[in-house]
Nucleic acid binder design. Structure first.
Lengths: 345, 345
DNA sequence: TATTAGCACTCGCTTTTCTTGACTGCTAAG
DNA sequence: CTTAGCAGTCAAGAAAAGCGAGTGCTAATA
């Protein structure tokens, strides 16, 4: 199957862009008029028919204009779309916003989510850093209230996990410090497998209770959303005409609330691929059936050596891919920079 | 203005319950037929007209049945509604679910949110414990990665706050321990005001950087949502017919995403009132304009002496108040029990 | 005085019909 | 290969008609 002619590419690009703007089927006449094409609407009609034959376009009904198919969007994103960078002043503003929270890492995540939602006008998702080879760096036990104790676990990657435990009896802080110190001496630097091996030694000692949790947390650390996942801009989505039917809206919201699904999606797409760039997933098909009629633009941040997280936006098929890709790239690069800066002395 | 007659109360109660079930305007004939009333539809019509005169009902249009007004719901909730407890097996199941996560306090919150959403079929919200008179109990500094340091602050109430800081240089864990110890010796037991007073002593010492954050956290601790607020069941809401118009849905979602609003609402209603019971807020009017056409059922958990949080559900005006109140009460009591148990030795 | 049967009236909803006009695909000429 | 011209298609919108659930009122009844 030969590629598209230059003119077909032009027509497809114009049509997709126009449709993304207007959300209405695009007609041959409209294309000629709006973009001052130097060939007639009849010619455009022929090209449209050809593009429809290739599976890039479809007509909602016989006498309507054309609408891109998922395949059409994919071709557009891969071959036709140019970059649509955020304007420099906006970028500066965002950099400034990050600068203002430079001392509080947790704010980086929520700010990223908020920035993405605001500038893409759709929903965003941001996961915390996580590493694939979790090793224990350090734990701390902090008495909070009665038998409740906060267990803080820090991994080699810098990832922080915490859990409030209810122990069997009340311990003063000094004893908790001692317990923590014992575990640190014993298990620091170990990964899940090694922890498992020394597990039997711990059995029936006073450390058993806490140790079990450390063990379990390290095992779970591989799951990307083990920390808090930030979301924003949910309400934005409902403004898009494709979610005017409440059914669609509900479906999408459920997708968004479903941790497992997102987990799988993010980790597979972002972490298993070696390409560090921006990934665009357009609608569900075979692999990602559940995505349905939503598209996803995601990128990872951090570094392969230490720890990585993902930032991304989710919207209808008809989303501003060009601007979206630029925005996601900008934010993920910014995050990577911030993190690498915060590691240097 | 005299009270309602017994028969008017009966008619109002039946109508509200029926409307909550069906979401359709209720006619006089329907009431007589469904509930085998021993007076005629004409009589019911007279009573309906009287109730409409009182502002408890209204007709969507001239020849339609009646629908409750906000006032109508309020009267129903205050005077007419009985208890509609969850069935015992369901209660046992929920208790069992809590039992399974008894060692992890953080799970209590997310489980509460999930239980409430599931059994009320609408959205839920759960805030962590927080105290009004925050005093510093203990801090810890944990090196995570490069210049990043996790600051964990534990208040007298047992509330935990944490923040990842980016310090100006890299410190080994031992030095961080020493710093933390210094601050603990100096400031343990102090409240916001006392911390402010010793602030000047800290100026220009190596502790300044960390101390500033501790100071700030204690001040902010009074805000209820300073910890993570758990939400669930958002998608449930969209199933309700009142949110079929995307505008309404969007509005409600925005309300739900707006932290400030919820904060204000929860703290004012739950904490400023002395009554520890379940509060029902029906639609926005003067005080809570923003609530619009949503209702809220909330209760606090914990104890006034130590720390309190709030659990609640949010839905359309037409929600199952009776079941809702029972469910919220059940969950909040359960949480209070768990917490008080976890404090005893 | 309170209740109720009877009846005319109202008005949103559904269905039907008609019209409009924005497109297309095809054909034949340039 | 391109394009003007034209017949054909079909959703969307407006207008009309009928339906029917439900009311308010009135007059008779207990």
């Amino acid at each position: 199957m030969a590629g598209l002619t230059e003119r077909q590419k032009l027509v497809l690009a114009l049509l997709v862009r126009d449709y993304i703007d207007t959300a209405e089927p695009i007609s041959s006449g409209r294309l000629v008029a709006n973009y001052h094409l130097d060939f007639s609407s009849a010619t455009v009609r022929n090209e449209l028919a050809a593009l429809e034959g290739r599976g890039f376009l479809l007509q909602p009904y016989t006498s309507a204009g054309r609408v891109p198919t998922k395949e059409g969007y994919r071709y557009f994103v891969q071959k036709l779309m140019g970059a649509d960078e955020l304007p420099a002043p906006i970028k500066d503003m965002i950099r400034h916003q990050f600068y203002q929270v430079r001392h509080d890492v947790d704010d980086w995540l929520s700010l990223s989510a908020s920035v993405l939602a605001q500038h893409s006008k759709i929903a965003s998702i941001v996961t915390p850093l996580h590493t694939e080879k979790a090793r224990l760096k350090h734990i701390a036990l902090l008495s909070t209230r009665g038998r409740q104790v906060l267990l803080v676990i820090i991994l080699n990657s810098g990832e922080v996990h915490q859990q409030t435990l209810v122990l069997d009896e009340v311990f003063p802080q000094e004893q908790l410090d001692a317990k923590a110190e014992q575990i640190n001496l014993l298990a620091s630097g170990m990964d899940a497998k090694e922890l498992e091996e020394i597990n039997s030694e711990i059995q029936d000692t006073p450390l058993e209770e806490v140790f079990a949790v450390v063990n379990q947390v390290i095992k779970q650390a591989v799951v990307i959303s083990s920390g808090e996942v930030y979301r924003d801009g949910l309400a934005n989505m409902l403004s898009e005409p494709e979610f005017s039917e409440p059914e669609k809206a509900k479906q999408t919201l459920e997708l968004f609330e479903d941790r497992g699904m997102m987990d799988d999606l993010l980790s597979r797409t972002v972490f298993e691929s070696d390409a560090p760039g921006v990934h665009v997933i357009i609608g569900g098909e075979d692999t990602w059936e559940q995505l349905g009629d939503c598209s996803l633009i995601i990128a990872r941040y951090g570094s392969k050596e230490h720890a990585m997280g993902a930032v991304g936006i989710i919207g209808p098929l008809r989303m501003a891919y060009s601007r979206g890709v630029s925005t996601v790239r900008f934010v993920s690069d910014l995050m990577s920079e911030l993190i690498s800066e915060s590691m240097s002395s």
